[in-house]
Nucleic acid binder design. Structure first.
Length: 552
RNA sequence: UCCGGCGUCGUCUAACGGCAGGACAAAGGACUUUGAAUCCUUGAAUCAUGGUUCGAAUCCAUGCGCCGGAACCA
């Protein structure tokens, strides 16, 4: 049980808030959700579920019309649903509260706790002071309630231009926490809002809108990331200053998720999209939920990963290996086996007659025989992976080499006899012999072969396209200061293999279907697939202990 | 120089004054019709110094280090 759960359990036990429990997930609709958001989503929904009638609201925090778009509102809802959370009717918008927030602002003015400042943005910034020196009061700080009320109404009516006036809270210009030095409440923005259109020309700031929106909704625990820790005194101040709320929400901060070999800043993700380093927000290399979905990640894997990384207050950098481990663990269970050859080389079995065919059935999943079997055909012409044959192999090479015998997965033993190459030396065909005694994959004499290869016969094969994805960044910490994250991009993060072959049975596979291509990894059907030509995305490769042996 | 937060194996995370544990990663081995999966084994940590205590990762003090904070962004 993490520290937030402990606080909440404690509140529940002591009957705080009448044992009510409510949280909220408040994204700004200015980009796609990524795996860092998944952490916030998971925390907020699992915490809410700790009480019988606990609930988590989705609140789109749309207080800045300049950056927000309706398409992001839609993608956010889609991604939350995909993760497995049903917000039902609990979808709210900060913009729905604009009128009520305005009334709160008037209340503050009447209480003498807010004033209209007519200084320029530059003056306001200069007079805020800095970490070491206190700020100075605005000359407009002492305006009367009546004047402030009038000015605020005229701000709303559009009588001022952007930058000519703002509404500020009257707190303390010498406060050591700079957030408390008369923070802005409203600024003028003559911009079109994606939901309220042109109804407003003043928009509330986050520090004002956020705590009050929580209070309006009856949120009891407002969970956010560490960078808002400095804002908590202000969060509490606005709720107290407006007054009359029950329950009074409590803000608790946790450390956001960081993962090696990727970036999780919205600005950087946006840059990758804009600079076309990736194909879009849902590029399978992106850490966005849309990208991970297209990549073939299962939502339960993402959630399990987040649960395993924990919730605490120290800064963290989770190794991507933990995510990859989780994906493999789930996909190993979920994905049925089939065979595909990504870089095919033709094999001719010279001692098998033209037209001769043998059929074998192989379990669809070795650990779950109840899932049934698949049929493969063995015949004179077939294909194996080019890299599975080596003319002069290193030690411990179990695959094909001159004179060496291997097993074709689920079928029989073959032995390499001759390699045919073109004028440039490229392998074009392998002549092999098979042992008819080895049908099924073993022989009466009980001799062992160490290597088993995946393969596909000429009649079973259809052409397909395979997208081999790897980590987007080759550096473990592309966000570290020493260079631009763009310089850390992995040039081989995508390899397109248009010559690949896969089993006929995959021709009509629906988008998102997942498979293990034996010995290669886990793959899913991309949305660009067509019935005649499937396109597969590699979600993650199998662990490859040969790669380590080969290295040494 | 100010304010806030945080320091436990390489990484993430437990411990609520009483044997520093787990997971990933790493190394070695067994098994294997996927060099997969599975199984076994091993190495690996309390930022430092003082104090309180029978006993401190935990409480106190001091120091050091790291992160965040000076948008009319969220």
């Amino acid at each position: 049980m993490h520290f937030i759960a402990e606080i909440v359990e404690d509140d529940l036990r002591t009957g705080k808030n009448g044992a009510r429990l409510q949280t909220r997930f408040p994204p700004e609709p200015n980009g796609y959700l990524h795996i860092g958001h998944a952490k916030a989503i998971w925390i907020n929904f699992t915490i809410a579920a700790r009480a019988p009638f606990g609930a988590c609201n989705l609140r789109l925090d749309d207080t800045n019309p300049a950056t927000e778009e309706d398409r992001f509102v839609r993608s956010i809802q889609e991604d939350i649903r995909w993760l497995g959370y049903d917000v039902g009717k609990r979808v709210f918008f900060a913009s729905d509260y604009f009128e009520r927030l305005y009334e709160c602002a008037q209340t503050l003015v009447r209480k003498g706790l807010a004033y209209v400042d007519s200084q320029s943005p530059e003056e306001i910034r200069d007079k805020r002071g800095n970490f070491y020196t206190p700020g100075q009061d605005s000359p407009y700080r002492t305006r009367s309630v009546e004047e402030n009320l009038d000015l605020l109404a005229r701000m709303r009516n559009g009588e001022f231009e952007e930058g000519q006036a703002v509404l500020r809270a009257k707190i303390d210009m010498t406060h050591p926490n700079m957030n408390m030095r008369d923070p802005l409440i409203y600024r003028i923005r003559k911009a079109h809002h994606h939901r309220t259109g042109d109804a407003w020309c003043i928009y509330p700031m986050y520090d004002f809108a956020h705590p009050l929106s929580d209070a309006f909704e009856g949120v009891t625990h407002s969970l956010c990331s560490l960078e808002f820790e400095n804002h908590r005194p202000l969060y509490d101040w606005f709720i107290e200053a407006v007054g009359g709320f029950d329950p009074v929400p409590r803000q608790i901060e946790f450390a956001r998720l960081n993962v090696t070999h990727t970036v999780l800043s919205k600005r950087k993700l946006q840059e990758l999209v804009q600079l076309e380093k990736v194909s879009g927000w849902d590029d399978p290399r992106m850490p966005t939920l849309a990208g991970m979905r297209r990549r073939g990640y299962l939502p339960q894997s993402i959630l399990a990963f987040i649960e395993r990384t924990g919730v605490a207050k120290r800064d963290n950098m989770v190794e991507i290996e933990l995510l990859e481990h989780q994906i493999r663990e789930d996909l190993n269970r979920e994905a049925n086996r089939t065979m595909a050859v990504i870089d095919p080389v033709k094999v001719t079995i010279t001692n098998m007659a033209e037209g001769e065919k043998h059929t074998f059935s192989i379990p669809v999943h070795p650990e779950y025989p109840e899932r049934g079997t698949r049929e493969v055909t063995l015949e004179r012409e077939l294909y194996i992976e080019r890299e599975d044959y080596l003319e002069s192999p290193p030690k411990k090479w179990f695959r094909l080499a001159p004179g060496q015998e291997v097993r074709l997965r689920g079928a029989c033993f073959i032995r390499a006899v001759e390699a045919r190459r073109d004028e440039r030396g490229k392998l074009v065909e392998l002549l092999c012999t098979w042992d008819p005694e080895s049908k099924g994959g073993g022989t009466p004499d009980g001799r062992k072969v160490r290597g088993t290869l995946h393969w596909i016969s000429k009649t079973d094969a259809i052409s397909c396209e395979v997208h081999l994805y790897d980590r987007l960044f080759s550096e473990p910490e592309p966000e570290s200061e020493d260079r631009s994250f763009l310089e850390c991009l992995n040039p081989d993060s995508l390899q397109i293999r248009a010559e690949a072959l896969c089993d006929r049975s995959l021709a009509q596979s629906p988008e998102g279907a997942v498979f293990q291509f034996e010995r290669l990894g886990y793959f899913c059907v991309d949305r660009t697939s067509t019935p005649g030509r499937p396109v597969f995305n590699r979600t993650i490769g199998l662990r490859d202990s040969w790669a380590k042996i080969a290295q040494s």
